[in-house]
Write a protein that binds this DNA or RNA. Structure first.
Lengths: 295, 295
DNA sequence: TCGATCCATAGGTTTGTCCTATAGTGGCTG
DNA sequence: CAGCCACTATAGGACAAACCTATGGATCGA
């Protein structure tokens, strides 16, 4: 149960001399003699052949010396792993993206984290805000990207980035010919395509409140995914408001993207995690994200 | 350096209850509390989250519990390996056969040893008496089969088997027609083929002394290997004395094998090892061989 | 034969772990 | 809401284990 004697024996086997080994171990030579004898008694095995003037290792002694070195190494490694875990430099972090996460933002964060904590194993998956919150609460993931604003019991959220919201116009639309920024008054009554509010009330209200402060014009079509919204715009059904990275990624013939006048509408990228006892890896990821967000 | 606290922590992590864990460890609960705190201080890491009424493991605590179990397992295995080595049930044994070893005898011994000590790794090679003694003295092998009688400084030898020596006669020889045992007088002057005495003086003298007690007749041809002796006999050059298993294995057209009258000539199979501090595996092999030889 | 080197033994001291007794805290129940 | 129960933490004294200094015995080389 005590590795001290193993340590003593390993050093003795290296030095093959009680006096020198004792000096290396910072103990008196009689103590070492005594402990080695006790070690042999404990194992019930003769490790030294004391028949000659210069003792020799028995076969079991050679094996014991090797095992002792391994055990001490193992102990050292175990200490290291535990310390690294406590520092957040080792372990496993389960991260959920959102499908609509602003293009490179979340991925950049993950990449930066990976390079800074190379010994943390990352498990990545992709969900959406409400799913990520559910899985977070269930303990199935450790951190999840979300679209604020939102509040959930037992969940903490930090804004770790934001991006501009663009207007997607049918290319045949009169406003598509306008080169500069679009005024809110010009689109106050234009038909709109949007996704169902229940898919993300927070983000829905954040976008609509900024783009159509006087109230959303008639919604002529609802589609769950940005890709289908873009298709609907291309078909001339109406105009849509879509986060910049997403809109550029989904750009297609028949759709032009335009910026809105000041104040520019923006939506945030949030990072959510379970409140309370935060594991070190989660803390590391959150802190890195906050730094990247400039807070 | 002391695994006691690791053990305590491993049990605590299993029970998740100081009182029960202390009972399982046969210590009072306050001791366990104290040792766990000391363990955390020693590692410089918080292993328990004591914020609630029922403590929880931190991430580092979970890792520490797993590492503790591994370490204790490792310790147990190490003890086992050392004990097995001391018993002669583990390790490595380097054995050298002799090319002319009586057929199945040595191989049977090795097979029996292997089945009785399956965790001993065997390194087998084939040499001859004088080479095996050299390699033994040099520490390149642990035991070697030899042809007694012989003496060598620092080497012990035990007879572990014996076999009859047969006469190989040219099939055209007058004695080949005789069905029973051959009398020594009949061959006292017959020309002989033999191998050079310097290849193994002990065995040479043992054979010649038993087969030709009055002195070896003229040696008409010398060949180093039994196989070539048999060929020489087949060609009618002379008669030869060859150990039974070997002779039967090399049996060929033109040669007949005949037994000699009482006292039947025999040669022994010896097992040699370094004298002095005998390693447990060697001791095991030697003891098994002696039992098999009925001593 | 003497000295040097090395390991073992003896006896007293210190350190660490254990114990018992008791206090503090949160949850459950009558 | 008060009292009880389960659980963990703290305090102080007891004991065992390891350590140290001093010394003895054995072997080797000069």
């Amino acid at each position: 149960m005590d590795l001290r004697r193993w340590h003593y024996f390993a050093v003795l086997a290296e030095e093959m001399n009680f006096t020198r080994a004792a000096a290396r171990l910072f103990v008196a030579q009689p103590s070492l003699s005594q402990q080695i004898r006790a070690f042999e008694a404990e194992l019930g095995v003769a490790l030294l052949d004391r028949s000659g003037p210069r003792f020799a290792l028995t076969e079991a002694g050679r094996v014991a010396a090797a095992e002792a070195r391994e055990l001490l190494d193992h102990l050292e490694r175990a200490r290291g792993v535990i310390a690294a875990t406590a520092r957040g430099d080792a372990g496993r972090l389960r991260i959920a993206y959102t499908r609509s996460a602003p293009g490179p933002l979340a991925a950049d964060l993950v990449a930066a984290y990976r390079s800074r904590h190379p010994d943390v194993e990352l498990a990545l998956e992709t969900g959406w805000t409400s799913l990520n919150l559910t899985r977070l609460a269930a303990g199935e993931i450790d951190v999840g990207f979300v679209r604020p604003p939102l509040t959930a019991p037992g969940i903490e959220v930090a804004v770790v980035g934001s991006e501009e919201v663009l207007l997607a116009l049918p290319s045949g639309h009169a406003l598509a010919r306008h080169r500069g920024r679009i005024r809110r008054a010009w689109i106050a009554t234009e038909p709109v395509v949007f996704w169902p509010r229940e898919n993300g009330p927070g983000q829905y209200d954040a976008i609509s409140g900024q783009v159509w402060p006087e109230g959303v014009p008639p919604i002529v079509r609802e589609e769950p995914e940005d890709e289908q919204l873009m298709r609907a715009v291309a078909e001339g059904a109406g105009i849509a408001a879509i986060p910049e990275h997403r809109a550029r990624a989904l750009r297609r013939r028949g759709v032009v993207l335009r910026r809105l006048e000041d104040p520019v509408p923006r939506i945030d990228l949030g990072l959510a995690w379970r409140a309370g006892a935060v594991s070190p890896v989660v803390r590391g990821f959150v802190e890195l994200s906050r730094q990247a967000a400039g807070r």
